[in-house]
């Protein structure tokens, strides 16, 4: 996945684990997305239904999922739902995104982060490298331990 790019775009620090060019079109709200046919970037609030986007994932290059507080875990399910539906564009967690939540978010399919506060990169690197194995299958490439055990 390479070393994430932490360039400062739009005044927000951004962590990106993708090799393609960052998508420049601003994300529109879900309501606005359904009101215009050619948008390629959309923002999903934590109480909005990710499944509404499934018919349109082919045209999307960026989905930004809001984390109004790090305690609101709905975005983890939203990410998995989009990845399980075959979405391959940028999936960005925005808002109250913290060091110790990012490894879980990566496993749910997020590959970009726009935290509202600075992230300590060294602490993040330690957190991301911490667990050598995954106990369960999720939306990332990690091989669950039961598959390692039985091939």
């Amino acid at each position: 996945m390479g070393d994430p790019d932490q360039s400062d775009l739009g005044g927000e620090p951004r962590l990106r684990f993708r090799d393609d060019e960052p998508h420049e079109e601003p994300a529109v709200t879900l309501d606005a997305f359904f009101g215009q046919t050619n948008a390629t970037a959309v923002r999903l609030e934590s109480d909005e239904d990710a499944r509404a986007l499934i018919p349109h994932i082919g045209q999307l290059a960026l989905v930004e999922v809001a984390f109004p507080t790090f305690r609101d875990g709905r975005g983890y399910s939203a990410a998995r739902i989009l990845r399980e539906a075959g979405y391959t564009g940028e999936l960005r967690a925005q808002g109250d995104v913290l060091v110790d939540q990012i490894p879980l978010m990566r496993r749910c399919g997020f590959d970009a982060f726009a935290p509202q506060a600075d992230i300590d990169r060294k602490a993040l690197d330690r957190a991301l490298g911490r667990q050598p194995y995954a106990s369960q299958k999720a939306a990332d490439a990690a091989v669950p331990v039961w598959r390692r055990r039985h091939g």
Partner: peptide
Amino acid sequence: RQWSTFHPEFSYLP
């Protein structure tokens, strides 16, 4: 137990 340990989707439940 193993499945639920560090479950990435269900660590910030309601």
